[in-house]
Design a binder for these strands. Structure first.
Lengths: 215, 215, 215, 215
DNA sequence: GATGAATGAGAATTCATTCAT
DNA sequence: TATGAATGAATTCTCATTCAT
C-alpha cells in the first residue's frame, strides 16, 4: 500500500506534520498491520521510514503513543457517518425504506474500509490487548454508534419493517452480518471469489428477511 | 480460570506430560489469552507456572513452539463435531428441520466455547500474526468445516428450507451470525445483559427467516 | 598490552570508529587472545571496554561478526609484504643472494609479529574452528603467499642457491622453519632464553644449508 | 572416524569402562576435535553418544574433567617412544647414523599421528586455553622429550653429524621441521597432494643438511 | 549405573528510550 | 528538527550440573 493512501486514511495532510513524521506514521501503519504492535520494533519502523531511531521519539514520547496517535483519529472517522450531517441523511430522513437504509449503510462501510483497511486491521487486532483502545472504543465509538443505531432500529420498528425485539439484539444481528460481510470481502476472499454487487444484495436480503416482522 | 479447566480444554491428561509441563501450559494459556503471544515473556510464564525459566525450554525448543503446541490441538478439537459421529447426528439424520439443526449447532458451539474460551481467544487473536496458524487453519479447519457445511446447506436447500443461493454465501451469512452470537455472549456482554435461551431463539429465528426461500 | 598498540595493529585510526567502538575492539582482541573466542562472553568484553553490553551489538550484529571484523583486516595485513612494493624489494630485485632474502624475510615477519602478536594468536587459535576464517585464509592469504613464494623459490633455484625440488616442498620446509622460529621467540621462550641476533643467524644458516643444492 | 579407532587411540579397552562411558569418550573426542572444547555442549556429547545427559556427570564430575581424562593419557602416549624401551632403540644404540635416527623418528611420529589424529588435534587446539594442559605438557611432556632429545643431539654432535650449536636451537629447528611435516601431511594437504615416501626423504635430507657441520 | 526432568546462572541479543551534538 | 551513539533492562535461549527415581 502506498503512503499516499495511508495518508489519505488519516486525512492528516492539513495538520502540521513534518515530512519525516509522515513517513514514520506511514511506516508504522504498515508494520503494525502486518506484524502487530507488540511484535514491531521502533527500529524497524525507523528503518522503513528512512529516519533515525531518535526521530520517532522526538514526535512521540513512547511507542504506545505512536500507536494511539494512529488509531485514535481513525476511530473518530469510524463514527463520522453516525454523528455528522451524514447521519441525517443515513438515519433520519432520506432513507424511507429499510432496504435503502441498509444499502446505504453497507456501501458507506465498504467505502470506509476501502480507505482504511490497514488502520481498521490494526484497530481490530490491537483492541483485545490495549486497554486504552478498549476504553476509547467503548466510550466514544460503541456508545455513540449504539445510540444512533438504536434510534434507527426503533424508527424502522415503528414503521413495521423490523420485528419487535430488543434493539440490542437487532443491532447485534445487524452488526454481525455487516462485520462478516466486510471481513469476507476485505480480508478473507480474493476479489475473484467475490461478486461485489450480488453479495451486497444477498446480504441486504438476508438482513431484511431475517429482521422482518412475522406476518 | 482454574488449571483443571484449561487442562480439560486440551484434553491431554492421558498423554505423558510432566506436572511442571502441565503448569507451564496452563500458565501460558492464561497469559497468552490476556496479553497476546508477542507481549508475553517466557519469564512471566515461568513465574506464573512456578517453574524455572529453563524448564520451559526443556519441553519446547522455542516460545513459538509452545504457542503452537497449545493452539494446534485445540484446532483439531474445533472440527471434531464436523468430522466424527457427531456429524451424522448434527448434519445428516436426526435433524429433520433446519430449525433443529441450527439449534443443535448453536448449542454445540456454545458448549465448545464454554470449555475452550481462552484457547479460542488465543486462536482468534494470533491468527492474524502467525503464518503457521493460518496455514494449519486453512488446510485443516476451514477446508473441512466448509466441506461439511456445504453438504448441510445443499441438503436443506433441497428440502426447500434454505433459499437458492451459492452455498458459499449461505455459509458466510451463517457463520457471521454464529460468530457474532458467540462473541456477544462470551466476550462482549456480561451475563446479566444476556438472556441465554431467548437470545438463542432470536438468533435461530433470524437465521431461519433470513435464509428462507422467498415464497 | 596497551590499547594504542592494538590499535596500531589494526591501523584503523583513520576510519570512522566511535571511541567506544575502539575500546570494544581493543578489549575483544585482548580477551579473545587470552581465552579464545568461544570462551569469551560479550559481557566480559563490555566490562573490560567500559561500555554497555548493548553497545557492542550496535556496532556488530553478532559476536562472530566482531571476531571477523578483527581478524579479517589483519589477514590482509599479513600478506602486505607479499603483494605491495615490499615484494619488489623482498622478492625481486634487491636481494641478490638467498641469504639476504631470508634475513629480510625473517626480520620482516618478526617486525610483523611484534606489532600483531595478539591478533596473530587469535588467528592461529581460531583458524581450526571458524569455517569463515578458513575460507578467507585459503582464498586470500594462502593462495597469494604461495604464488609469490613459488616465484622466489624458482628464482633462487635458477640461481643455483636452492636445490631442485618441488617448490611446494621448499615452501613447506621454509614456512615450517619460520613459523617455528616465530613461535619459539614470541610464544614459547622468554626473552632471556632467546638471543635474538644469534638465533636468527642460526635459522638462516639452517635454511640455507638445508635447502642448498647437493654439490 | 569410527569408534574402534578412537578407542584404540586411548588404548583403554582393558580398564573398567562401561559401554556407555566408552561411547561418551568416543563422542567427546570427535566433537571436541571438530568444534573445540568451549564450543561443545555436554548435551551434544550425550546425544551423539546415545546416553542421557546425566550419565556423563556420573563418570566425570565436570566437563573439564572429561576433557582432561581424554587428553592426559594421550600425552602420556606421546612420550612413550622417548621413555620406554623404544628409547634404547631410537635414541641409543641401533641408529648409528643420524639419517637412520631421523627416519625412525619421523616414521614413528607418523605412525603415532595416524592413530591419534583426533586426540592430537584436541591437544594442539586446547593447549593455548587450558592452563592444566599447559602445565601437564610442560612438566611431563616437554621436559621429558627435551631431556632425551638433548642426549641424542649431543650424541650426534660428538659423532660429528650435527654442527656445534646450542642443543636447544637444534631441537627447535628439528621439532619445527617435524611438526611442519606432520601438519602438512595430516591436516593441510590431501593424500593426492602428498607423496609419502618422497616427502619423508626430502624432510630427512633437509634436516641432515641443515644441521650438518660446516666442513 | 543410568536416566532425564529440573534448575538457575549466564549467554547472546533486542529494544524502547535518552541525550549530546 | 533530526541524528545516531549509547544505554541498561529485559528477552529468548543455552548449558553445566544436580537429584529423585
Amino acid at each position: 500500500m502506498e503512503q499516499n493512501q495511508i495518508w489519505d486514511q488519516l486525512s492528516l495532510d492539513e495538520e502540521e506534520f513534518t515530512p519525516k513524521q509522515k513517513k514514520i506514521i506511514a511506516a508504522a501503519v504498515e508494520i503494525f498491520a502486518e506484524k502487530g504492535y507488540a511484535a514491531t520494533s521502533t527500529s524497524e519502523i525507523a528503518k522503513k521510514a528512512g529516519v533515525a531511531e531518535g526521530t520517532i521519539f522526538r514526535h512521540y514520547k513512547t511507542k504506545k503513543e505512536l500507536l494511539l496517535s494512529i488509531v485514535a483519529p481513525m476511530m473518530a472517522k469510524m463514527i463520522a457517518p453516525f454523528v455528522i450531517k451524514d447521519i441525517s441523511r443515513v438515519l433520519d430522513k432520506d432513507y424511507d425504506t429499510l432496504e435503502d437504509f441498509l444499502r446505504a449503510m453497507i456501501k458507506n462501510r465498504e467505502a470506509f474500509m476501502e480507505k482504511n483497511m490497514l488502520l481498521f486491521r490494526i484497530l481490530v487486532q490491537e483492541l483485545p490487548f490495549q486497554k486504552e483502545l478498549q476504553e476509547q472504543f467503548k466510550e466514544h465509538i460503541a456508545a455513540k454508534i449504539y445510540t444512533r443505531m438504536e434510534k434507527a432500529v426503533m424508527h424502522y420498528q415503528e414503521k413495521g419493517e423490523i420485528m419487535v425485539m430488543p434493539s440490542k439484539t437487532v443491532i447485534r444481528l445487524f452488526l454481525s452480518t455487516i462485520f462478516g460481510h466486510l471481513m469476507a470481502r476485505f480480508f478473507i476472499l480474493s476479489s475473484e471469489e467475490w461478486e461485489d454487487e450480488k453479495e451486497m444484495e444477498r446480504t441486504i436480503q438476508f438482513l431484511m428477511k431475517g429482521l422482518s416482522p412475522d406476518e
